[in-house]
Design a protein around this nucleic acid. Structure first.
Lengths: 339, 339
DNA sequence: TTGAAAGCGCTAACAC
DNA sequence: GTGTTAGCGCTTTCAA
């Protein structure tokens, strides 16, 4: 697999590597290369099937044209979709993407950041894990171009793409109220991450604004690492209460799917016994016998925005932090009852 | 973001970069560096927070410690899961992963291969698209280390990881027969890809071996790019036939999910009206009111095997092609009726 | 219009 | 024990 280099072409053409470089990077105008010479070089390059060595180019330019992407778990369709849009948008700008999954784990996150940085990525797109504030703050002091997506830390002023979590949750819960539900439970993650807490706040405020006193006993928190068991407990408690929950709002996709699996085993009927609303879409929620009403995030737009903001930092050397907050859409289906 | 280099450390320590390099790559023994000197260098490196430049190292060594991964679509959980296991196994070997989605498109595939190769990946893991035989053959003649996964081309002797598609399909369909189904339809992709065709063959042979004459009218093919419409037509035809299908075998995950969505709209009951079996797992299939019987592929093992085979080529310079065929498991659930 | 050469950061053979 | 240096492939300044 002997690679052909500029030198090979130069030798073959009887010129210096400089000429070849100019021609092959389309700088012949600036360098005022002879027309025939240029053509000859191009011809030889074609004949030898020359492929530029990006590594060498990177070493020279200090640019790798690679973006590092850190998600919680690439096998989760939510992040898979984000990855996909980032990939496409990156490619459109001649960038490639290296990825890594943090598993919501601070140590893995730290590790990934340093691995990707060592690989000289030009910048990072990160869905930060709980407790990674230090890491993010450090990236900022190191002047590494980066942008957060999905999650963010309000106390650290950096660029991020997010949605209006509060309003989305507020609207979702308001819809349940409009459907006549009185005992509305919520299942979220036990986390300090702002996006989840904003969703809790939206839930809380929606109840209060509609004169339904929010009760702590209706808000359940599951641990990421003990999802299934915590969900079971939560749902059992909500259903076995004196006034059983008649509606459930899930803070994420995964919570909803695992929750519904358990709800199925209990023989609870949706929406007759229990109305359901959740954040995020998913095939499972479409195929469910009572298609689930959900908050649709503009994933494509978020991915594109993330790449654009990042490249602004990398290429245009923009210094200002960009905070982009997008709106969601409540997609109403059968799981809340008739409408 | 001024990066500190070996030279900075060397200057600070008053030694040559060579010494620093030896120490920091733990070659002090071979180079017989003084104990105090080594410690001093390490100390300075720590103080300056030295991070090696992988690009430079790669240029020198000709190794990038990066694997290129080409899947059909990273947002499809099947490929997301493959990507995840590959990521983990790669990391265990100090490799990172660059990925790209081919969308089952030959041109995108060619493009991706060349982009990743230009980025000097040390090798490729590819789920090849239909019609990419030339590309694969060329990789072989170029001596690029690579391994195919999921799909393969029987006529091109290269390394690949696959499952026993024929037997898996045979067993799945046999199960339907055992459940008393007589009019068993199959929906697959219209493709020349071997793995799908082996599944068709398994379907066909299972019918024949059980004295159910396979009829062409029961085997339906959908185009990847026109999935929904073709599925509709297929299912309509199967259900409106003189002898309507009483069971359906889907060749993939995506086909099953989209197919079931349509089946739901028709009010067809599973398994009473129509029994279902499919390849591949998925949350949607778990959550379906009649959990779907499916062929489970050993994705983790496949991913690991792919990385191992690839690294054998890269690191151990193995020349022999490795063909690994894994067994699947038929996970029986409600969608075929009682058992 | 073209060429020589420095240098990106690192490694390793070789010299002292 | 430690230093010098060539060179990985490419870009770009400066000189011719």
């Amino acid at each position: 697999m002997k690679k052909v280099s500029l030198k090979d072409i130069a030798t073959e053409a009887g010129v210096s590597t400089a000429l070849v470089s100019y021609v092959l990077t389309n700088k012949e105008k600036e360098a005022r290369i002879g027309k025939e010479m240029a053509e000859k070089i191009r011809e030889i390059a074609r004949k030898l099937n020359y492929q530029p060595n990006h590594i060498a180019r990177s070493l020279k330019s200090g640019r790798s044209y690679t973006i590092g992407l850190i998600v919680a778990d690439i096998s989760n369709p939510f992040f898979g979709n984000i990855a996909r849009t980032i990939e496409d948008e990156a490619k459109r700008n001649n960038y490639t993407v290296i990825f890594g999954s943090s598993d919501e784990n601070v140590d893995k996150s730290r590790d990934l950041i340093s691995v990707l940085l060592n690989r000289q990525v030009d910048g990072l797109i990160i869905t930060p894990t709980e407790g990674s504030e230090q890491q993010i703050a450090q990236l900022k002091t190191m002047n590494v171009p980066f942008v957060l997506i999905d999650r963010y830390f309000p106390e650290i002023p950096v660029s991020y793409i997010t949605i209006n979590n509060y309003q989305s949750a507020y609207d979702a819960v308001s819809h349940l109220i409009k459907m006549g539900k009185k005992q509305i439970g919520m299942v979220a993650y036990k986390t300090s991450l702002q996006h989840i807490n904003e969703r809790k706040r939206g839930y809380h405020e929606a109840l209060r604004d509609h004169d339904l006193l929010p009760k702590n006993s209706l808000l359940k928190l599951a641990r990421y690492a003990h999802l299934k068991e915590d969900l079971k407990t939560a749902i059992d408690q909500l259903r076995n209460a004196k006034k059983p929950a008649d509606a459930l709002f899930f803070a994420t996709n995964t919570l909803a799917i695992e929750g519904l699996k358990y709800i199925n085993t209990l023989g609870i009927r949706v929406p007759e016994d229990l109305a359901i609303v959740t954040f995020d879409e998913g095939e499972a929620l479409d195929l469910f016998y009572s298609p689930v009403t959900f908050v649709r995030q503009p994933i494509m737009d978020m991915g594109k925005a993330a790449v654009r903001v990042l490249l602004d930092q990398i290429i245009a050397a923009k210094k200002e932090t960009a905070v982009i907050c997008m709106d969601t859409e409540l997609v109403i289906r059968k799981s809340c009852g008739n409408h």
